[in-house]
Design a protein around this nucleic acid. Structure first.
Lengths: 212, 212
DNA sequence: CGTGCTCCATACGGTATCGTATGGAAAGGA
DNA sequence: TCCTTTCCATACGATACCGTATGGAGCACG
């Protein structure tokens, strides 16, 4: 929460802003207000400067959006690689960890940013491309963990897709239950997604205990 | 696609608008532009009238939003009951049907409206309440189908949650694959969600063949 | 014909925002 | 000291929107 310019600090000793300060503030803003709420003058008020500063660092609004998107893209790619780097033999554990850190209850702000950007992607093809790239990388990372558990390529792909879709879908839901009850529910579902699944047209057993 | 006022029709023989015409147009608009794009004068242009008409039918912008939300709520509740009314013995089939009709590939516009409203719910508690109600009803409907298949209450709840979260999560994703490949993937996942799942800490068999 | 009701057009004041133009303060080098 | 560069403030025109005020066309009805 270290804002670059403290309101209590006299203007004489303000830190000069740079592009990244604007981008950080923009990320904060879309988390609460959505992409439509990303206004230059609103941002400027938050940073305790005027538009003049913005138009020195950026060409226009679109330019900030592009920088914001690129910043998000890089951060997400770095993060998913970090979160899925598993020690050999602990892949199942790592999968459950991924579900946990990406779930809304532990990462509310991150989810809000995700939702804002994905809503943005619904009506901007350039954004949709970036989102598609991030999705592909995340899916590949999750898939690799399932592959390490001994699943076939097709199974691993499907399992990773289910995991990924579930996590985001759950964050979209507005559940009315006791927090404790929700946690039990989520633990159970996470067990299904990461654990053994019986093929529907097939004998049980062969593909079962692959994860321990 | 039956717009109330055809642009080619002379103004002398226009059909008078009513609230529902405005609400329908509003739904169309948020599907493409999001909640932030729901502007009175934009709507008026689409309906070939001016603001004067709007403010005769509605008190203000908020009033339209509330009517819109109520319209969405009623429609969704009616629809989920319709989609989950299964003949005895065909519950599993009905569950796969539900996944199909709510998936983005067959219901693009509906998904866009859902996303727009859920994004809206992130920053409006009244909207969040309505969304929570719709979610609860949909979950209950899906849960009932699982219960009819012989699952325990807790299992049915978890399975319904997984189904529901998956469907919406998948609609948020931007997948870069061949359509045919995606369909195979989705069929496989739908089979897992609606079909047998092995409990991770339990013998296989007892809860297995419940659906066929 | 006159009256009232329904539905919409027009005009207005007010706010928020975009992007531009331009001036100015601070700091560092020549 | 003077000049340049960096960073920001201020002022401006233009647009889009909100909500209100008010007039007016058309139709029903006595």
């Amino acid at each position: 929460m270290a804002t670059v310019n403290d309101p209590n600090r006299p203007p004489s000793e303000r830190t000069p802003l740079d592009r990244s300060a604007w981008i950080e503030a923009a990320i904060e803003l879309i988390a609460t207000e959505g992409i439509a709420g990303l206004r230059i003058e609103t941002l400027a008020r938050r940073l305790r400067v005027t538009k003049g500063s913005f138009y020195w660092h950026f060409r226009d609004r679109r330019s900030l959006q592009q920088a914001l998107l690129e910043h998000w893209r890089e951060g997400r790619i770095r993060d998913i690689h970090k979160q899925t780097r598993a020690l050999p033999g602990r892949e199942a554990e790592q999968l459950r960890h991924v579900i946990d850190v990406y779930s809304a209850s532990r990462n509310r702000k991150g989810i809000l940013i995700e939702l804002a950007i994905r809503e943005w992607a619904q009506r901007d093809p350039e954004v949709a491309e970036v989102v598609a790239e991030v999705d592909a990388i995340r899916l590949a990372c999750a898939r690799d963990l399932f592959l390490a558990l001994g699943l076939t390529e097709e199974e691993a792909t499907a399992r990773a897709t289910l995991l990924y879709a579930y996590v985001f879908g759950f964050s979209l839901m507005h559940v009315e239950r006791m927090p404790q009850e929700i946690e039990r529910l989520k633990t159970r579902i996470a067990g299904w997604i990461t654990g053994p699944v019986a093929e529907s047209g097939q004998e049980n057993g062969s593909k079962q205990g692959f994860f321990g």
